[in-house]
Amino acid sequence: MHDLSEIGERSLVDLARRDRDAFAELYRRNVQAVHAFARRRTGAAADAEDITAVTFERALRSLHRFDPARGSFVAWLYRIATNEIIDQARRRQRRNTPRNQAILRAVVAGEEADPPDAAFTAGTEGDGELLAALNTLNDRYNTVLSLRFIAGLEVADVAAHLGITAGNCAVLTHRALAALRRQLEKGQAS
């Protein structure tokens, strides 16, 4: 019988491929970190819970694809969470029609306190403008900035998970920041 709490991450991941209790231990070790990342990245408590749940479901389903040589397990979870955040933002943009917004304003908030147009897309906590702008970037830019700055991963770890060199990761980060700046400036101009 293993004492799972004393097993190192790499061994625990190996064990989790065939032992559910080992996956439960991985879940227990990482659930708060993934949730914190999701909450910071989305700015919304309910979204963060959804994303945390989906992240671990996908991790469980795809555990055989995790390669420890490409970085830590939690970094892999952050990557999964980021993909889910991007997917969620896309789904919301599709249903965030002007008609829905008009009905919402008329019914929920009252005439004296209209909600912002980004009510369905932007977070309600933290730097909502920044988080909303992140969601407008392409997937690669969004991912590299989310992992590097919101998750706080090292360049080497981000690079490994994206399958690129550290140098390329730095270039990608620079371009992503430039795109984010343009997006923010565009938002301010309008």
């Binding site: 949730h35 914190a36 408590a45 963060a48 730097d127 700055f149 706080g152």
Partner: peptide
């Protein structure tokens, strides 16, 4: 600004 967003205190699940 991004790093600040990444360090923002959030409640535990």
């Amino acid at each position: 600004r991004l790093e600040q967003a990444g360090r923002r205190a959030v409640p535990l699940l």
